[in-house]
Design a protein around this nucleic acid. Structure first.
Lengths: 357, 357
DNA sequence: GCGCGGGCAGCGAACGTTCGCCCTGGAGGT
DNA sequence: ACCTCCAGGGCGAACGTTCGCTGCCCGCGC
């Protein structure tokens, strides 16, 4: 289990350890030869185990560091039947939310001594057939899924059925996969309740990609808040904006056209909100005076729009970290199957919302 | 007459191939047993080589697919002495530029059939001592460096000296490492020349992190453009803004305070530019009427600021892809050492610049 | 003086591959 | 009838580890 690399001897004044020796990487056998013991004994020492005299132990450590020995994880994995590596299947790297998730996941894995092999699947789904086999070939100990577009992927059931630990950030077709993610319904609810509390009674919504679970959850929260307050929730008050700025812009424009009396808009994503902001501006409405805007995600940029965005903070980094934590727990102890973890979210009030005029 | 395994399990036409068999992963030996040949022959067939009759070949393929055989890359790597895996050492995932670089690199690696094991180093430098050993243990075939903060890292010379192919996006201490990156000096030059051509004669600059190569290059381009046009380039016209929004804001404010007659600002990064935008706004200057602003990077957000940012487009994605391409070329053919590749950049004119009033 | 236990180290096997060499049998040539 | 040749396939070895067992020697108690 311990991933020890030979500690460099500070007294070593001579050249830094060579990485290669005679063209070949140095192995335990080389270290063994240099310290006059069998390679198995060397292995024992380097892994901290066994009963070995202090003298030879020191000799071996010394030799290892002299030679610049670096253990070969491939060989080790072969016999240990675990690679100390997890697979990370992701969507678009440049999605700001996703990238924070990745950061959290990677760092947590690293903290626990695991390596991460990463592969992304293209939005169009290409790469899906590549991702899984690639991970299996590499014999990862588990897989962390952070690819929204794989929600529908049936190929996953393959893996799911057959005891390779897997945790997903997003919903997975067929269920049965442990999921860790923000409480999206709560996010929608909090955002909307905020608007309601400010006195808004005609509230429009610009949604994310319609088919996606995340969108559905946030919208559910949206409706719940409206229902609780007895506020109208007509279908025409809801427009799909996709996940990009331009989509948000278009959706908002069409919203304003059909229901000009709108005084507030709830938006599924900050990125869309940027588009909405622009559309409102173009329509000559001042924010928040003429129209309030609240969204979800709390990306870095949210504090730098004008006005700064009131939005529900979604703990992306923590989501990635927590998902990885759960995955590694299952990896370590296969009985530790877990269901669905919901991470708390909270509203961050900035300048884009105000009491209804 | 094929020799079947005594196990003679019923050929299930419906069920998908099992991933595990009897708790253990299926290996070539299992496939061999089922098709009545030696495992070495199986290996030959599965790798497309050797001379094997069409009949047995088919039988083996069939058995492999029935059993859901997935080759073990660990074992293969052991004997082949290459892992078909490259290491990707990166900085902050959520840096928009970096994340695009990662995307390019990952996709190119995937295209060429290589896996990517990724690790990030924290801004404070922690993780540096971890990253390299982790890569070496995993016996990656090469390393792609995309971590600005490792510019100064001396531990790298270790690797560099000893024939592990390595390509970096950023400058590496000690030199000797192949580098692929945007032409940063050109970026600074193009941006500044644009301002000069618009008639600006008092031009301030908000820079990135001072110590960084990238900053120095862009500033060099900035000065060159000024010098060519015979425009003043006083030190007090240059303020360090770091790489974040807040820093840009502060730098711009101090610039305006010391030289109120400034009519244009050149900014090293879009993110800073966002801060500058805000500072200008706070100072009551309209953009671009009272003050022009140009920056570098052309992040997605640049088109959504108000006004949209005139900026030099930097091909992040292509940088990552090209760097990976170069790395894999060196991996495949160790003689193919290469020096420094500069990728072209170009100015994108939007709304934040105008002729001087 | 003898047997015994324990500390220390060695040894063989296994993990799942690839690679090169060897063996076999039957077809074809003389 | 004999040799040759080649396609088809087996076999041993190696890659760099870990693990469990075995064996040696020494010191100690009786």
């Amino acid at each position: 289990m311990s991933l020890r690399t030979p500690a460099g001897d500070p007294r070593e004044v001579t050249a830094k350890p060579p990485i290669s020796r005679g063209g070949r990487r140095v192995s335990v056998k080389d270290v063994a030869a240099r310290s006059g013991v069998s390679f198995q004994t060397t292995s024992k020492v380097l892994n901290g185990g066994g009963s070995v005299s202090e003298a030879t132990r020191a000799r071996i450590i010394r030799a290892a560091s002299d030679l610049g020995y670096v253990p070969n994880l491939q060989a080790r994995s072969l016999v240990m039947r675990r690679t100390l590596t997890v697979g990370l299947i992701t969507g678009d790297f440049s999605d700001p939310g996703l990238s924070r998730i990745l950061a959290g996941a990677e760092q947590e894995a690293r903290r626990q001594g695991y390596g991460v092999v990463i592969t992304s699947v293209e939005p169009e789904g290409s790469g899906t057939e590549y991702a899984l086999p690639a991970m299996m070939e590499r014999r990862v100990d588990g897989i962390l899924l952070a690819a929204p577009q794989m929600e529908q992927d049936r190929a996953l059931s393959h893996v799911v059925d057959h005891a390779l630990p897997i945790v997903s950030i997003h919903h997975v077709a067929g269920g049965g996969v442990a999921t860790v993610g923000p409480d999206d319904e709560l996010a929608g609810y909090l955002a909307t309740r905020h608007l309601v509390e400010l006195g808004h009674r005609v509230i429009g919504s610009v949604t994310g990609v319609r088919g996606r679970r995340l969108t559905q959850s946030r919208q559910r929260g949206f409706r719940r808040a409206l229902d609780e307050a007895g506020v109208e929730s007509a279908d025409e008050l809801v427009q799909e904006g996709g996940e990009k700025v331009a989509g948000g812009s278009a959706a908002a424009a069409s919203l304003l056209a059909s229901r000009p009396e709108i005084t507030a808009i709830f938006c599924d994503h900050d990125l869309e909100a940027l588009g909405v902001l622009r559309a409102l501006h173009d329509a000559g409405r001042r924010i928040p005076d003429d129209c309030s805007l609240v969204s979800c995600d709390d990306l870095d940029m949210a504090q730098f729009t004008s006005p700064p965005l009131t939005t529900v903070h979604v703990p992306f980094y923590e989501t990635g970290a927590e998902a990885m934590r759960l995955l590694l727990r299952v990896v370590a102890d296969s009985k530790a199957r877990a269901g669905r973890v919901l991470l708390p979210v909270h509203l961050v009030t900035r300048g884009s919302t105000a009491p209804v005029a």
